[in-house]
Design a protein around this nucleic acid. Sequence first.
DNA 1: ATATCAATTAGAGTTAGATCGAAGTCAAGT
DNA 2: ACTTGACTTCGATCTAACTCTAATTGATAT
Lengths: 131, 131
Amino acid sequence: MYTINEVAVICDLSVHTLRYYDKEGLLPFISRNKSGNREFTEQSLGLIKIICCLKNTGMPIKHIKQYVDLCMVGETKVDDRKKMLVEHRREVAKQMDEMRKNLNIIDLKIALYEKGDQHEFAHHLEPARSE
Amino acid sequence: MYTINEVAVICDLSVHTLRYYDKEGLLPFISRNKSGNREFTEQSLGLIKIICCLKNTGMPIKHIKQYVDLCMVGETKVDDRKKMLVEHRREVAKQMDEMRKNLNIIDLKIALYEKGDQHEFAHHLEPARSE
DNA sequence: ATATCAATTAGAGTTAGATCGAAGTCAAGT
DNA sequence: ACTTGACTTCGATCTAACTCTAATTGATAT
């Protein structure tokens, strides 16, 4: 059993954020002890890690909630869960591709600077027959 | 010469966004025609593409502004510009690495679902001696 | 010249995702 | 009993990056 503070450290989230996630319905699986404090099991930690993983790859909180809800209803929805992940996987792959392209452009630009080739303004601001 | 609408289409940005960028000082290089409308040159387009590239890789508007400002003062700041890009490049590489790791976790999870191995709640919610 | 369309501005509003503050509860230690 | 400190809630606030509104001006077509 872990307290909210321990989970915050383990998962690199703030306590605020964890409570916020709970409020948003992302953590329906945690229970409370007799004084009303949240108790996190090993199993919770596992799912929270998945949640972070989805969040860090840009899945919106609302979709994450959908996924978690599917996790809570039991085996019946395994196909749906898998479908969500596969779809998200595709999304992430697309993002990475975009990223790669942009990285290439940045690299190209750096290479130009390396060549002393600036391609910018100011240094050839001859008005070029301003109309 | 391009109008704001044409640029919006070419760069896949809304007209609103372009004006917002201008207001934020990201487009100090564009001029106005006699009726006060923005005029975009071929050269502007080039820099706007770089701006988008930086934005799409997560550089905040404020940093982009710094970069653009360096572009405007001429050759003197080529080193600084390059430094900014190199630094950002590193940042982006880090992001991609994170992304890759998360993608792996997602793939793992998908594989588990494929094996019919769910690892979630509900289906073994025997109270496990609740305390 | 009048209707329509495209562009302008300043500034308000929106969204997502936190992040914080105030006020209060609870349990352990001295 | 009292302080300490971790926890609670609710609601306000914050930031980034738009997104929209309203009122207006200017250019184009009939």
